[in-house]
Simulated scan of single mutants.
Amino acid sequence: MAETTSNGAQSVTDHALERYIGNTIRELRQKHGLTIADVAEQVGISRGMLSKIENAQTATSLETLAKLASALGVSLATLFRNYNIPAGSAQLVKRDEGMEVVRRGTKRGHTYHLLAYDQGPTKLFEPFLITMDDASEVFPTFEHPGTEFIYMLEGAIEYRHGQSTYRLNPGDSLTFRGDIPHGPEKLVALPIRFLAIIYYSTLPTME
């Protein structure tokens, strides 16, 4: 299994693979309550050899790995299943930790929390949690590139898009083109909370 370089040194990649295989075999053996002697006897290798395999001190053949997998009740593919999986890069924003932003014309009773940010120079989408709690506020209309999706969480609102007005209650959703004038028309029941997700097919312009 192990490859060597021109000077006879084992490659770093092979060491990483042997450590992964060794750790996986040990974890499976311990999970099933088996001793090194139990597994070594089933596979037909010495206890010392199995110990070396688990500690990445030696390479072994695919035939032996297949026997080890069988003794541990898994397939050979299972031993390699989680090897070399790319690192995750998900962004977690905890409750009440969204970045508060101010959009043009919204000064009071209208709060935007951006739920994902730092996405690089080209933004593909922006998800907002929007809260409204002042019925006397006069809301501006908005226009922006892309498509917007709204999902009502709490309260009730009349929302205008172009020449049409829509009544939104909890559980309702609305999808529309962002380049057509839109915005809250009337706050029906306070407080109001809804998710607004803007998807950009092209780079958004700065307001």
Rank of each mutant, 00 (worst) to 15 (best):
E3M: 12
L115H: 09
L68M: 14
R160Q: 14
I157V: 14
L187K: 02
S201Y: 09
L72R: 07
A9R: 15
I85N: 08
H161D: 03
H110D: 12
T165E: 09
H15F: 14
M152I: 02
S46T: 15
F139G: 03
D14I: 08
L76G: 07
T202I: 11
V43W: 01
R47Q: 13
E207V: 06
L195P: 01
E27A: 14
F128M: 08
V39K: 01
L62N: 13
I198A: 04
A135H: 13
P184W: 03
T175H: 01
M152W: 02
K107A: 12
Y200L: 06
V74F: 10
T131S: 15
G178N: 03
F80W: 06
I198Y: 00
T78W: 04
F194W: 05
D14F: 07
L28E: 09
P191F: 03
S164E: 13
F142C: 08
L129P: 04
I21P: 01
T60G: 09
K186Q: 11
K94L: 14
S70W: 04
Q42F: 00
V93H: 05
Q42T: 06
Q91Y: 10
I130R: 06
A16H: 12
L28I: 03
G155V: 09
R103A: 07
V93D: 02
A87G: 12
V93Y: 05
G146N: 09
L62P: 03
T175G: 05
S164N: 13
I85D: 10
I45T: 07
G8W: 12
F142H: 13
E27I: 10
A2E: 14
T106C: 11
F176I: 02
I36S: 04
L187N: 00
Q119T: 15
F149T: 01
P121H: 13
N169Q: 04
R193P: 05
P191H: 07
L28Y: 12
S201W: 03
T5N: 14
I36P: 01
A9S: 15
E143Y: 07
L68H: 04
D38K: 02
L28M: 14
Y83I: 07
I192F: 01
E3D: 14
Y151N: 08
D179K: 06
E3C: 10
E18G: 05
Y200I: 06
G22I: 07
Y200A: 03
I197Y: 00
L114I: 08
L115F: 06
I197D: 01
R29W: 03
T106N: 10
